[in-house]
Amino acid sequence: MVMGWGVLLPLGMIVARFFKIVRASDWPATLDRKFWWHAHLTFQIAGIGVMTLGLLLAYGRGEGASELARLHHLVGWTVVLMGWSQVLGGLLRGTKGGPTGTTIRGDHYDMTLRRVVFEYLHKFGGWATLPLVVVTTTIGLVMVDAPRWMPLLIGGWWGGLALAFVLLQRQGCCIDTYQAIWGPEPVHPGNARMPIGWRVTRR
């Protein structure tokens, strides 16, 4: 569970948020570079897979649980359901379309209601889960009386991720997905609406 939600999934989220356009990508001369997408997908699939394995190993071992353990189970199940809802949402996100696709019409290129709903739920749902992860992990460490190096290591890792988030955000690396894929020209319908997400920028 710690490997899934503490390492793999947050890395995938940071890649998707900050690495759609990198200095070596020659944007906007070269559009729709898929490094960030492949990395995001790889981290998220691996993270959900490891999370599910952890769930299977822990399932049915809560007999005679303390109040603290019951809280861990409750918040933990919420995190698991949030994780799998992200997978389901991804499968239902609709078609892509656009000049780089096989057909110009598509949910993402046209920014249909289906795509807009997906983006709000996917982005805000994913980031909103992380505080629950911190709570669940902390309770778990207390429950098993984990060696002191474990919370120090996990806390240091999370602190490093938080610092990277702040630095990348300040550098203006959080670029709108739509613009990263199709460019800034106003001819593209999605550029007529505000980008979705907290402090997402356009160039």
Rank of each mutant, 00 (worst) to 15 (best):
V15D: 12
V15N: 06
V15C: 08
A16K: 04
A16E: 04
R17W: 03
R17H: 11
R17A: 08
R17C: 03
R17Q: 07
K20F: 00
K20S: 02
I21L: 06
I21A: 01
V22I: 08
V22K: 12
V22D: 09
R23K: 12
R23S: 14
R23Q: 13
R23P: 04
A24G: 11
A24V: 06
A24Y: 10
S25V: 02
D26T: 08
W27A: 02
W27V: 02
W27G: 00
P28N: 13
P28W: 01
P28K: 04
A29E: 03
T30N: 10
T30C: 09
T30M: 03
L31T: 02
L31E: 01
D32Q: 11
D32R: 13
R33L: 06
R33E: 11
K34Y: 04
K34M: 10
K34D: 11
K34E: 10
F35L: 13
W36A: 03
W37T: 05
W37L: 05
W37H: 13
H38D: 14
H38N: 13
H38A: 14
A39W: 12
A39P: 07
A39Q: 06
H40D: 10
L41T: 08
L41R: 09
T42K: 03
T42I: 12
F43H: 09
Q44K: 11
Q44V: 13
Q44G: 12
Q44E: 15
I45T: 14
A46E: 02
A46S: 15
A46K: 05
A46C: 12
A46D: 05
G47E: 04
